[in-house]
Structure formats: structure tokens, C-alpha cells
């Protein structure tokens, strides 16, 4: 009944996914090595931890986006979602003095925005980029209106612990990132939902005709994307101790870049969360390296844009080869 295992398993030890992850890891080590050669201070524990802390924020925004893209969608509203969630949470904490209200508000606002995205795409059959692009501006507008030109700052220390605290010598945001990364990985690889998401992304029609409740799954994907944006907004708020409009939008481009660099195909059905984590680290290192080389911060959008373009062209080449049409 069963085939002897030796017949099927070829001796090569690495799956293509693992090989790709390893390749990205090697790339990171190489760049880090080069930067250390330029400035030994780069390799200091404090700088590395600081960088990981920056990368963790980017990763949190990119993690939900990864899920959505694997499932064949797109979420351009993650950055604006972070802004709005952070502003609302900051206001909630300020007025109540209770950080847990802030947590509830951020998570609630984040998921609600994700839910609205999913609803627009399911019910109005809008192309995802259009629905979420509209949501970007709506969320941003609400944030500007709500803040009315103010900045809310001065969070209680008990809350700031989320962003600045350490646990076992490692910054708390990194722990949060590890938890989210693990959760996403389990979700993608160890739940039926995850397997269905890959299938939907690879061929939505076939998924529908295989009995996958595509609309419900899609809604959940966008809700999760909103949820991670909400979590990211808490980390942001706790670390920077202030919320104002416009804080999250600049994260959109690097988040998309992190997903693409991490090996998740924009065409869906392919990719993994570990890649996005490495992608986020890679992008952070690049930015950090630019700072080290005294390149002005004004270059960052240019670099992010260039990384997106390079990543999508590479993705095209790979996916054409993969599907055998190239």
C-alpha cells in the first residue's frame, strides 16, 4: 500500500524553499561583513539589536501583507492602517491612562480596516490594489482629522515597555516579532487555512471548484493583515512614545520590498514568512549601511523604490521559469 520511502525521497537534502532562505541569509551575512569592514561599530551588539528592533517593526507590517499576497491579493493600506491604529490607541491610552485600552483599540481598529478591505474586494469585486489604495487615503484622512494637527506623546512607562523593554537581554519587539513569525509560519504550514491560502493564490478558480470557501478565506486574510498592522502600531507607539499622522505610510514601500525580497511572489501561491523576516532584516541593513556610509536619509524612498523594482523583475524571471512558460 505504501511506497518504500527510499523510492521517493531523493538524497538532496535542501528543499528549494530552504535553499532560497539560506541564500538570503548568506547575502545578509555578506553585507553585514562588508559593513563591519567599513565600520567595526556596525557589528556591536547594541547596533545589531537596534537594527533588529527596527527590522521587527518593518516585519510586523510586512507579515500580514505576506499572508495576503500568498493568497493572491494585495494590501496597500497597511502603512496607513498603522498610522490610524497608533493615533487611536495613543488617544485611548492618554484619556484612560490604561495601556490595555490602547491595545484593544489598536487591534480593533487594525482588524476593522482589514475587514473593510476584504468586504470591498468580496462584495464589490474590486481589484485588491484599488480597494486597498482607496483605504490608504481614507485611513490617512481620518487620522489627520482625528489628530487635528496635534501629536500625542508621553505614553506611560508600563506601555513603553512593549517597545523599549528587554526580556532575557533581547528587546521585546524582537520577541513579538518571533511570536508573530512563528504564528504566521504555523498558520501557513500547519493549518488547513494556510494550505488553502497557497492554493487560492496559485489558482483561485481551481480553489473555488475544489470546494474552498474562497471569499471567507480571503476575508480572513485581510483581517489578519489588519491585525498585524494593529500590532505593529502598538510596537511603534511604544518605541517612539508618540503618535502623529503620516508615521506609517512611508513603511508601505519597504514592506512590499521586504515581501518581494523575501521570495514571496506577487503573483500569489508562493512564498513564506521566514523569507519576509529575512527581507525585512536585509532592507534594514541596507538603510543602516547607507547611514553608515553617510548617505542622507532623503535617499531612503529612492532605495526602497529601487529594491521593489529589482525584486519584482527578479520575481518575474523566477516565476516564468517556475511555471515553465519562459
Amino acid at each position: 500500500m505504501t511506497i518504500p520511502a527510499t523510492l521517493d525521497i531523493r538524497p538532496s537534502s535542501l528543499s528549494p524553499d530552504a535553499a532560497a532562505l539560506l541564500g538570503r541569509f548568506v547575502l545578509i551575512v555578506l553585507i553585514a561583513g562588508a559593513l563591519t569592514a567599513v565600520d567595526p561599530g556596525f557589528a556591536s551588539v547594541s547596533n545589531l539589536l537596534n537594527m533588529l528592533r527596527q527590522a521587527s517593526l518593518l516585519f510586523l507590517v510586512a507579515s500580514g501583507l505576506t499572508l495576503v499576497i500568498i493568497g493572491g491579493g494585495l494590501d496597500l493600506s497597511v502603512g496607513a492602517n498603522l498610522t490610524l491604529s497608533a493615533c487611536l490607541a495613543a488617544a485611548a491610552i492618554k484619556t484612560t491612562g490604561n495601556p490595555w485600552y490602547g491595545v484593544a483599540v489598536a487591534i480593533g481598529a487594525g482588524t476593522l480596516i482589514g475587514y473593510a478591505n476584504g468586504l470591498m474586494i468580496n462584495r464589490l469585486q474590486l481589484p485588491p490594489f484599488l480597494a486597498t489604495f482607496g483605504m490608504l487615503w481614507v485611513a490617512q484622512g481620518i487620522a489627520y482629522w482625528f489628530m487635528a494637527g496635534q501629536t500625542i506623546y508621553g505614553m506611560p512607562m508600563s506601555f513603553r515597555y512593549f517597545g523599549t523593554g528587554f526580556f532575557l537581554g533581547v528587546p521585546l519587539p524582537i520577541w513579538i516579532t518571533l511570536v508573530v513569525c512563528l504564528a504566521c509560519s504555523i498558520l501557513l504550514h500547519r493549518t488547513t487555512f494556510g494550505r488553502e491560502a497557497y492554493f487560492m493564490g496559485a489558482n483561485q478558480t481551481a480553489a473555488l471548484l475544489s470546494g474552498v470557501p474562497v471569499e471567507r478565506r480571503r476575508l480572513l486574510l485581510y483581517v489578519l493583515s489588519g491585525l498585524t498592522a494593529g500590532i505593529a502600531s502598538l510596537v511603534y507607539l511604544a518605541r517612539l512614545n508618540a503618535a502623529e499622522p503620516g508615521i506609517g505610510e512611508p513603511l508601505l514601500l519597504p514592506a512590499i520590498a521586504a515581501v518581494l525580497v523575501g521570495g514571496t511572489s506577487l503573483f500569489g501561491g508562493n512564498g513564506n514568512i521566514g523569507g519576509t523576516a529575512l527581507g525585512a532584516i536585509l532592507l534594514t541593513i541596507i538603510v543602516n549601511g547607507l547611514n553608515l556610509l553617510n548617505v542622507a536619509a532623503t535617499w531612503h524612498p529612492f532605495v526602497n523604490g529601487a529594491v521593489v523594482l529589482v525584486a519584482i523583475i527578479a520575481d518575474l524571471v523566477i516565476s516564468r521559469r517556475r511555471s515553465g512558460s519562459g
Binding site: R195, Y198, F199, A202, N203, T205, A206, A207, L209, G269, N270, S319, R322, S323
Partner: peptide, 13 residues
């Protein structure tokens, strides 16, 4: 177009 996700593997399909 309707029965298989071609890029995925036998197990997924």
C-alpha cells in the same frame, strides 16, 4: 485552469 494549481506540488493538489 480549473482543476489544478499548476505551480504547486502533487501533495498540495
Amino acid at each position: 485552469r480549473e482543476g489544478l494549481a499548476l505551480p504547486l506540488d502533487v501533495r498540495d493538489n
